[in-house]
Design a protein around this nucleic acid. Structure first.
Length: 649
DNA sequence: GAGATCGCATAGCGGTGCTG
DNA sequence: CAGCACCGCTATGCGATCTC
């Protein structure tokens, strides 16, 4: 901007001020000096405000929306900086205060004629100065708008977004976290990530199938992220291939799998992608089912030993019968894993993980460590890694702690004479390491109790169990009525279920006895009907003294043959299929639905009526006619959101 | 005066933790 | 797990105030 232009603008400003001065003198006279000063301060802000109203169209163009999308007063919001808005309000307040006006009515008495006069002034200005010049006058404001619109439409471009997502992934963030920071859905993030070459591919992970050979075992998948352990999933071996695509993005770096398999996944802890977490424990309670391989983890890099030299030493040790030939020799990134695959003495079966066998397994692992350490200390076998719940790095994944170029975890399968991968039984290995198999000393079984931070600290939460019991009883009785009594073959179990639920609901023994007998009589045929049917009172007594197991509503619904439709028809609350309970949980709340409907309708109105957006109050009436009741305040927020959403489309 | 917005109270939602 | 208690937070609406 050159000096001449500046001079012109200043002149216009002076003109404006002069006009305003005149109005001021017409509107209010006999005011104190301070009052006048305050007023002029206000006028300056006010003047800007007025001018801003003139540039509604250019703002709309900048924003890429129809001018009507920006109501007159909202122009102010878009153009004034927050500081300026504050200043404006503050000055006005101070001015009114200075005028010594107490009530709202008194204020209006003054402000209304003032605003009316201002309106006249605007007309005058338009005629005298002309719009173009006003626009030039507000060039500075336009610059501000430009800045604002930039921040408003902060749309990260697609390439930039992808780069950002990849960068965050490299930092070790989960897709969930990334979706939060980039405001994209998790689905999109995962899709973008999967376009990238994932370091791990399916054939590499197939190796896991070679190690975990019993199809009904559960494998644990986890990873190390920011030096912290994260459970990813506990997956049945025969479902591994199916589940893998979902999990691959999580397995690229510092990912681990359990060497030995469990009998199930974790009962309540969640992993990622909707999978349950893995559950691998030697005891309290024991969850391992199969022992798949003995192993040795060596940190030879600590002794400065290269992988290739370490492998040479291992091969030499095999040659010299220090250790039996390993089935797999692996590079873990910085060290070596050795794996000796196990099998059962019964052909075609897998070694089960009974306590006795776990004890032997650990002894063998310890013996391996001992032998190798004696043979070549530079191998640096990890002396604490001999347990049965161990996890090892997944073949094909990356070890981010290793040097670049040596990060990939490689599994090398050793084929020895007879074109076979060596497989051992625990007994074979025990013999080779001179371990005598001794019976375990008797240990009383430890009843499993969940770890709780502060047991007994919230007695009120017992209500949860009682409610569950009552819900289930109510559902069970409804089902019984619907079926015309429980049928033969299901009567004993159904009565048992009733007893368990009633016990959980806090019924007394005599109540349970009475109601169970009622239920038994209503069975089809009435229970007991055969001579060797357990009497009802005996069932009750047994359950009364027994530990109450946890029940799963999905399984219960399968037992009672409750389909989603039947559950809905009967109005069941608890004993319903998992898919239905999921559906119920996923259903947006009523509030949410109403909000969504309101906003959609508002959007439609905006699109339908360019240049003629109804006021909030009119919108309110339109919405009311469609059965959507809400206050102006609510509709105001809805309106703003709708405008923003339209802009982002 | 009509319309928009602010401040505040509160119902209800959702996340976390405990219970058996 | 499946429930409730607890707690923080959000959505909502009323009355007051501000804007034009």
């Amino acid at each position: 901007m050159n000096a001449e232009q500046k001079g012109q603008i200043l002149k216009k400003k002076e003109k404006l001020l002069e006009l305003l001065k005149r109005i001021y003198n017409e509107t209010f006279d006999n005011k104190t000096k301070k009052q006048k000063k305050d007023f002029f301060k206000l006028l300056w802000v006010k003047e800007m405000y007025t001018l801003i109203n003139e540039i509604r169209t250019p703002i709309a163009e900048k924003m890429g929306v129809d001018p009507s999308f920006i109501p007159q007063d909202k122009v102010c919001l878009f153009t004034l900086t927050p500081e300026k808005q504050k200043e404006f309000k503050e000055t006005w307040k101070q001015f009114l205060k200075a005028m010594n006006l107490k009530t709202e009515k008194e204020r209006k008495k003054i402000s209304i004629p003032f605003y009316n006069r201002l309106e006249e002034l605007r007309k005058e200005m338009r005629e005298k100065i002309g719009i173009e010049e006003i626009e030039r006058l507000t060039k500075k404001e336009m610059e501000k708008i430009e800045l604002l619109t930039e921040t408003l439409s902060k749309e990260i471009k697609i390439e930039a977004l992808e780069a950002e997502i990849k960068r965050l992934r490299a930092e070790g963030k989960t897709p969930e976290e990334i979706s939060k920071t980039t405001k994209r859905t998790e689905q999109e993030v995962i899709e973008i990530l999967s376009r990238e070459n994932t370091e791990i591919d399916v054939p590499a992970i197939e190796l896991i199938h070679g190690i975990e050979r019993q199809q009904d075992g559960y494998i644990t998948l986890c990873r190390k992220i920011n030096k912290e352990h994260q459970d990813l999933a506990g997956i049945k071996i025969n479902e591994l291939r199916e589940c893998l695509p979902k999990l691959l993005p999580w397995l690229a770096k510092d990912a681990y799998f359990s060497v030995n398999a469990s009998y199930r996944s974790h009962p309540w802890r969640k992993g990622v992608e909707g999978f349950p977490a893995g559950w691998r424990k030697e005891k309290n309670p024991p969850t391992l089912k199969y022992l798949n391989a003995c192993y040795c983890d060596m940190d030879c890099y600590k002794a400065g030993l290269k992988w290739s030299s370490a492998v040479q030493i291992i091969l030499q040790a095999q040659e010299e019968n220090i250790i039996p030939p390993a089935s797999i020799i692996a590079r873990s990134g910085r060290g070596i894993y050795l794996l000796w695959l196990l099998t059962s003495e019964r052909t075609g079966a897998q070694q089960r993980a009974f306590p006795q066998e776990i004890a032997l397994y650990k002894q063998i692992n310890k013996a391996i460590i001992e032998r190798l350490d004696n043979y070549e200390p530079r191998l640096m076998p990890d002396r604490i890694a001999f347990d049965a719940a161990r996890i090892l790095r997944i073949p094909g994944s990356l070890n981010t702690e290793a040097e670049t170029g040596q990060q990939q975890v490689n599994f090398i399968i050793q084929v020895i004479t007879g074109n076979k991968v060596p497989v051992y039984t625990l007994k074979n290995l025990a013999e080779k390491f001179n371990i005598s198999v001794q019976p375990l000393p008797y240990e009383p079984a430890i009843i499993y109790k969940r770890q709780i931070k502060n047991r007994g600290s919230a007695p009120g939460r017992r209500q949860g169990k009682i409610a569950t019991g009552n819900y289930r009883i109510s559902d069970l009785l409804t089902i019984a009525q619907n079926q015309g009594g429980f049928k033969q073959g299901k009567r004993w179990k159904s009565i048992s279920y009733f007893c368990y639920f009633a016990k959980a609901a806090g019924f007394t023994l005599s109540d349970i006895e009475k109601q169970s007998q009622d239920l038994a009589e209503k069975c089809d045929p009435p229970y007991p009907s055969e001579p060797d049917d357990t009497p009802v009172l005996k069932i009750v007594k047994n359950i009364w003294v027994k530990y109450t197991p946890r029940f799963n509503n999905d399984l219960l619904s399968k037992f009672f043959k409750v389909t989603p439709k039947l559950a809905d028809d009967l109005g069941l609350h608890s004993i319903i299929p998992a898919c239905l309970s999921q559906e119920r949980a996923d259903k947006p709340s009523e509030q949410e639905t109403l909000k969504h409907n309101r906003r959609e309708l508002i959007k439609r109105i905006i699109r339908k009526r360019p240049g003629n957006i109804p006021s909030l109050r009119k919108l309110k009436k339109i919405l009311e006619n469609k059965g959507l009741k809400a206050s102006v305040e609510t509709i105001n927020t809805d309106f703003k959101t709708a405008i923003n959403e339209l802009k982002n489309v």
